[in-house]
Structure formats: structure tokens, C-alpha cells
Nucleic acid binder design. Sequence first.
DNA 1: AGCGAATTGTCTACGGGATAGACACTCCGC
DNA 2: GCGGAGTGTCTATCCCGTAGACAATTCGCT
Lengths: 200, 200
Amino acid sequence: MNSDKAATSPRRDRTNDHLKSALTKLIKEKGFHAVTVKDIVDYAAYNRSTFYAHYQDKFELAEDLLTSMLHGLEIAVGQPYVTGQKVYTEKLNVPSFNIVAYIYEHRDFFELIKYGDTLPGLLAEFPQTILKIYREQFTFETINNIPVNMDYFKRYTAYGFYGLVLNWIRQDFKESKEAFIHEVIDLTKTHMYSFKYVGK
Amino acid sequence: MNSDKAATSPRRDRTNDHLKSALTKLIKEKGFHAVTVKDIVDYAAYNRSTFYAHYQDKFELAEDLLTSMLHGLEIAVGQPYVTGQKVYTEKLNVPSFNIVAYIYEHRDFFELIKYGDTLPGLLAEFPQTILKIYREQFTFETINNIPVNMDYFKRYTAYGFYGLVLNWIRQDFKESKEAFIHEVIDLTKTHMYSFKYVGK
DNA sequence: AGCGAATTGTCTACGGGATAGACACTCCGC
DNA sequence: GCGGAGTGTCTATCCCGTAGACAATTCGCT
């Protein structure tokens, strides 16, 4: 059973990462459709054969880039919280809000939303992933327990947050990470009393 | 004679580049003295053995990083000019000033000057390299051919330029690259009539 | 439309670089 | 003076990246 060629290894992962970085950079330079496989391997300093040993074409690479980053976002979100423990928005602070930290740390990638001819699927799947996180990983409590359709509430707050993030990125992170988080926290407090992290 | 192990190859160069990037990033995070070889290989996703196959220790890596970047600066400077052709400062424009473009493109590296515990030798050798470029690659003509000790003139203008660059970097490139170049050009015009690029 | 250049996708054989692991040693915090 | 972490060196193994060829397709240009 160990005769299978390993689908993953430190070396393969590393090479994949470098190819992804190259694609990110090149999309910004010339737009996704204009990027060729040759561009990618030239920039990342690999052989063209190597590329095809990892991906079928640039679309598969693009898909891997997108899903890996959005998956990373899903994983990173819950880290500050204890499962099942209620968090009062009144006491929210910067360190407990590392979904923003993740986006900021990977701003090289998320900046791609600013570009017209950009990573396929990014504009659609980025907000959907935020919604997915709200749906699967959290439960919310409205202020004074005002009854509400929770599915709508999650959609509303998720896309509201997305809108703020989009603006933050489009303004080249002019606002500091901390200042931005405070903005988000302030807005959260206006309609949310507490939330729980319910699992990855 | 070809039995020598190649000191350079695309693969080796690429690995070296990644180790250099890792060191750059880690210096910003924890300061040069606190960076360990283990930190570097962990961050760059290499094996520790690989590091020692490329460098003796982190100091040799640091030296390679420094010299390669400053050498790149030397090479990049002359590119816009034709050897021996006189350039009138009155007609200087942005595209002819790509020493600044080089620094900006590699701002990840040059930002290191902002850090206290930073790359050894950087603070000393960066301005020296600028002076070296002025000395070896250019000849200058003062306005109205006012006589001057040319060695002093080069030192004066080189360090003047260095001062401006330092400030630009320390202010996080707040000024746009183009705006900054215009500043430099304006100042150049105050005391320089023309210059020649005399060789690589 | 039609030519030549560039890119693509696939394949092969080769070898060099990356790997894991062990070892003795130094250094430092507790 | 103990334990943990990092260092520098060394092995043996082998996987991944390499160069190169190939036909097919697309692109840029007139």
C-alpha cells in the first residue's frame, strides 16, 4: 500500500507553493488570461516539465490556489475560541478576531480581488466562504434575543463583513489592521449580543 | 574540468533565493541575532541538511543576501543609458531613473534598513555601494562647468541621494515611486548639468 | 488566408539535490 | 548541574526536478 506515489510531501508542497506565488504575482502583472505556463515556470525558476508533473494546466493551479487559501481561512477563524464557550461581543478585542489577521497576512493573495482579469472564482467564492464559516462554525445571539430568521441573519452579517473587507483591501489596507478590527467590532455590537464557536 | 560539482545551477540558485527570502522575513519578525538555522529551514520548508549543503551558517547566508542585492543594484543602474552618451539633467525623466525602481521592486529587502537588529553590514554597505556606482559608472558635469573636486562631488551627491532614499523607505514608501523620482530629479538639476554613463 | 513563432501537453532517461536520521557538541534557562 | 534546543557534520537513499524531443495547437503578423 506504500507503493503509491505520495500525493504530498514537503518537497511537492513547497514547489506547489512557489508555483502558486508565481501565479499570484503574474496575475497582477498581466491578468490571468495572459499568464502562460511558461511565464509561471520562468518566474518561479522551475522547468516546464515540473509544472506538468504537478498540475494539468494553469486552471488546475488556479483552482488549487483558490481552494487552499479559502480553506486556510476556514481553519484560521476558530483558533482564538474555545468550542462551545459563549463570547460576548461587548468584550470582543483584537486578538480574538484573527480572521482579519489571516486576510492581512495573506494580503498578497487577497489583493487579487482588486484586479479585473483575476483568479477565476475568487469574487464568487470568497464571500461564499465567509458565509460558510458563519453557518458551520458559529451560532449567534441577537441583542435582547430579538427573534430572527437565523439563516438570513448569518447571510446578512456575513456579507456585511465581506463588504467591509472588500473596501479595506481596495483601499490598500490604508486603515491599520487594528483600526479595521475595531470598526468591525463596533458594528458587530450593534446587532449581536454573543456568539459561540461550535467547531471546525 | 567538468567533473567539478557545479557551484551554481537553476535548482541551487532557486533554493538559495528561498533561503534568502526566509531570512529577510525572519529578521523583520525577531531580529537577526534571534534567527536560527532551524527557523530558516522551517519557514522555507527545507531540511536542515539542505541548509548546510548551501551555506556554512546563517552569517554566510546573510553575506550572500547582502552582496547579491547590492550587486543587483549596481547592475540595474546603468540599464537605461547608452555608454558614453551625455545625458542632460534638464531632460531627465522617470524611466531613465531605474535605480529607484530597483529599490522599490526589492523593497522587501531594502526595508531591512528600518530594523534595529538587522542584516549585518547593510547600513554600512548600502550607501557605499551607491557611492561606488557614482564613482565607477558615471561622470558628472557641474552647472556652468563650475570646477570642483570631483571625488568630493560624487561623495556629496551619492550620500545626498542616499539620504533621500533612506527617508523614503523609512516612511514606508508613502510617496509614490514617480513622485519620489521627480523630487530626486529636481534636486539633481540644482547642481548638475549633465552626466555620462561610462560602463558597467 | 497563411506563414512562422510561441505555447502546449506528453514522454523519456538521467542525476543532482533534498531527505531522514544519527552523532557529539555547545549554549542557556531553570 | 540538569534538560532542552540549536549547531555542525556525516551518511545512505531516492525522489523530484532536469533537459530534450515531439506533434499539435494557438498566436501574432502581414
